[in-house]
């Protein structure tokens, strides 16, 4: 919990009422779904004595995995908190990788294609995302300020903007810009289409985040800044926005991560970004799964990078409160 109490409640997992049913449940699931004949079963196959009947084999496998889980919990609970977090994170990541590995992947194929996937696909994805993130942030700032302004025209535009672009499916926006605008005589290339659609859509979501962030700052801050003679831009830029960042950054980080993956929708208009290449490169040799998993892992790694960046920025804007 965020603010620690000074009571040592026993950890949930050390209470028999919790870990008993949990382990029984795990055992039942493993047994019922016949873990012995799955990838999990193969992992522990070595320690099951040879020559047991299939029924016995199933029971022993479930038992072995359950005991391993219990032992694992037992060990983890004895570590300091940070190590617990990292170990559990690592174990779960290993399980996911194992899951991918179990698909019997052709690593030679991945090796052959990964270069192109990175130099063409990743670079395009990063380019589209980075430009869109920047534009969306600018749009969101303008939108939020317009919504809070006393200018009726600005408010009207901002309200309509958020309503329209939050209301239409992103895919539809991409098609409308790519296929609809040429009807008006403006032909837009695929990449600018993607950037425009992502910026407009995410700018609309983020307008609301920025607005809520600005509104979270108490009136006294505005009054103190004004009483000191600060002009409106200085009040906003030096006093209000820097404080709103604490509220704005976590949901904005969410949006950035979400946008990174939604940039894959741009593949529908033929942009050679990560998702498009993953689909097309796999097709030629019927190696879809290899490419999908590789692309997934790249997306995941990028998200982790964004998470880390978000954490740093959060720490920066929290320093006044925590130091």
């Amino acid at each position: 919990m965020h603010y620690h109490d000074n009571v040592d409640y026993p950890p949930l997992l050390t209470r028999p009422i919790v870990f008993g049913p949990l382990l029984v449940g795990l055992f039942a699931v493993l047994w019922w779904f016949d873990a012995a004949n799955s990838a999990i079963g193969r992992l522990v196959a070595g320690i099951i004595p040879a020559g047991t009947t299939p029924g016995m084999h199933g029971l022993l496998t479930a038992l072995a995995v359950t005991l391993f889980a219990a032992f694992n919990i037992f060990v983890v609970l004895r570590l300091p908190l940070r190590q617990q977090v990292w170990l559990v994170w690592g174990e779960l990541a290993a399980v996911i990788l194992l899951f991918f590995y179990s698909f019997d992947l052709s690593f030679a194929f991945i090796q052959r294609k990964i270069g192109f996937l990175l130099t063409q696909g990743l670079v395009t994805t990063l380019y589209i995302s980075a430009v869109s993130i920047t534009l969306a942030t600018i749009l969101a700032l303008l939108g939020a300020i317009a919504k809070l302004s006393s200018n009726g025209i600005a408010q009207g535009i901002a309200h309509f903007y958020t309503s329209l672009f939050r209301g239409l499916p992103l895919l539809m926006q991409i098609y409308m810009i790519y296929l609809g605008l040429p009807q008006l005589g403006y032909v837009v290339d695929a990449v600018p289409t993607g950037i425009a659609a992502l910026s407009l859509c995410y700018g609309a979501y983020m307008t609301e985040i920025f607005r809520a962030g600005i509104e979270s700052i108490p009136k006294g801050q505005w009054e103190a800044a004004r009483a000191l003679g600060l002009r409106p831009t200085a009040v906003m830029g030096r006093i209000i926005l820097p404080q709103s960042m604490r509220v704005i950054i976590p949901p904005t980080g969410n949006q950035f991560i979400s946008m990174l993956k939604d940039s894959s929708l741009v593949s529908v208009v033929g942009v050679w970004e990560l998702m498009y290449l993953a689909r097309t490169q796999g097709q030629t040799e019927f190696r879809h799964v290899e490419m999908m998993i590789t692309a997934s892992l790249i997306y995941w790694l990028l998200s982790i990078v964004l998470e880390l960046i978000q954490k740093r920025i959060e720490t920066h804007f929290n320093k006044a409160v925590t130091r």
Binding site: A225, G229, Q243
Partner: peptide
């Protein structure tokens, strides 16, 4: 208003210091 605010200083009940500075 600018000219007037330059001539007038104000102290509030709730201090209203800027917490990020």
């Amino acid at each position: 208003v600018d000219a007037v605010r330059r001539r007038v200083g104000m102290v509030f009940q709730q201090f209203n210091l800027f917490p990020h500075l």
